[in-house]
Amino acid sequence: QEELVKAFKALLKEEKFSSQGEIVAALQEQGFDNINQSKVSRMLTKFGAVRTRNAKMEMVYCLPAELGV
């Protein structure tokens, strides 16, 4: 569980995922086979993730800066 949270936060820091499906796929690539869209959705809510525009003006998920991840 701890490893999943770390990987999840690291992915969001990249600010390149525009959908929950993309986050699920990226986590599965890292070996988290039991991850699915509903789990990702709950984690996004739990950590207060928001959708914002990145440098390329794409809408992407990211974590609020005050979490200091």
Score class of each variant (00 low, 15 high):
Q1M: 12
Q1I: 11
E2I: 12
E2Y: 11
E3A: 14
E3M: 12
L4G: 01
V5H: 14
V5R: 09
F8V: 06
F8W: 01
K9P: 01
K9H: 11
L11F: 05
L11E: 00
L11M: 08
L12H: 00
E14Q: 14
E15I: 05
K16G: 05
F17R: 03
F17I: 04
F17M: 11
S18L: 08
S19M: 06
G21A: 14
G21S: 13
G21L: 14
G21N: 13
G21Q: 14
E22N: 05
E22Q: 15
I23Q: 00
V24A: 08
A25T: 11
A25S: 11
A25Q: 13
A26S: 05
A26G: 03
A26T: 04
A26C: 04
L27M: 06
L27H: 00
E29Q: 11
E29Y: 09
E29N: 10
E29P: 01
Q30W: 08
Q30E: 06
Q30M: 14
G31A: 02
G31W: 02
G31Y: 02
F32I: 03
F32L: 02
D33L: 13
N34A: 10
N34C: 10
N34S: 12
N34V: 05
I35G: 01
N36C: 04
K39C: 10
V40N: 00
S41N: 10
R42M: 14
R42T: 11
M43N: 00
M43W: 07
L44Q: 01
L44S: 01
L44V: 04
A49R: 02
A49Y: 05
A49I: 05
R51H: 08
R51N: 04
R51Y: 14
R53K: 10
N54K: 03
A55S: 13
K56Y: 10
E58D: 07
M59S: 06
M59L: 15
M59R: 04
V60Q: 03
C62I: 13
C62N: 05
P64I: 05
P64R: 05
P64H: 04
A65L: 11
E66C: 15
L67T: 14
L67K: 13
L67V: 14
L67Q: 13
G68N: 12
G68M: 07
G68C: 06
